[in-house]
Amino acid sequence: MVLAGSFGPFAVMAYRQLRRFVRTRARVLASIINPIIWIVFFGLGWANAFNFPMAKAIFGGVDYLTFLTPGVTAMAVFTASFIGGVTVLWDKQFGFLKEVLVAPASRASIILGRIVGDSIVALIQGLAILALSFTIAHSLRPWGVLPATVYAFILALGFTSAGVVLALKITSMEGFQMVITLLMMPLLFLSGAFYPIKFMPGWMKWLAYINPLTYAVDGMRHYLAGVSTFAPLTDLAVLSAVTAALMGAAAWLFRRATID
């Protein structure tokens, strides 16, 4: 009964996020251009530099583009989902949040619906990047797409939730800008998306180990490129645990949200 009553709000919030995604084409384009730049300019540039006989050994036996593209796909999903979650801040700024908070629907179902909607949006963007990757990196494994998508979706759920948590805690637009620069770039560089973790200095390696994004990159790379640092099930376990915690935190904070 409770579940049935909550499905309406849950589904319609997911629907809202997808609807907005379709409407704001410019933003969508901007968000996939960034990973494309990474793949084309950064990726192709280094791919030629790493084009010597021993180079593949650095990347676990694959060429650099095959190593990089799963990472950039994860990056696209990470960026889109995190920003998507943070847009709760805009809802706060422009009043839609009040409209939702005054509704009798379960707060958890509303925010979880939103998180799922934004995650689907992020996943679509990631898949677009992955499709492009297949045209450039020829050693990617097509059968790895499906399991990689599962990892990507869990990643999206986790970081959309993280974005929501931050948005509910941040009170100013300036704070938002700061979080973006102070959090997103280091998380990306410490995820092993661009270079293997095993060559990082010891202290940096530890930071990479506690970065949840690392496990998404690693898991997706395992299925798409056949290279990984951890066992895929370890990746899945860590990623799922972190995501569950973040979703729980987002739901908990949203339930207690007031407008002051």
Binding site: R19, G95, F96, E99
Partner: peptide, 12 residues
């Protein structure tokens, strides 16, 4: 409730 500040979804 109709709030003082607009609370509509502009993109919809």
């Amino acid at each position: 409730v109709v709030f003082q500040d607009p609370s509509l979804d502009n993109e919809l």
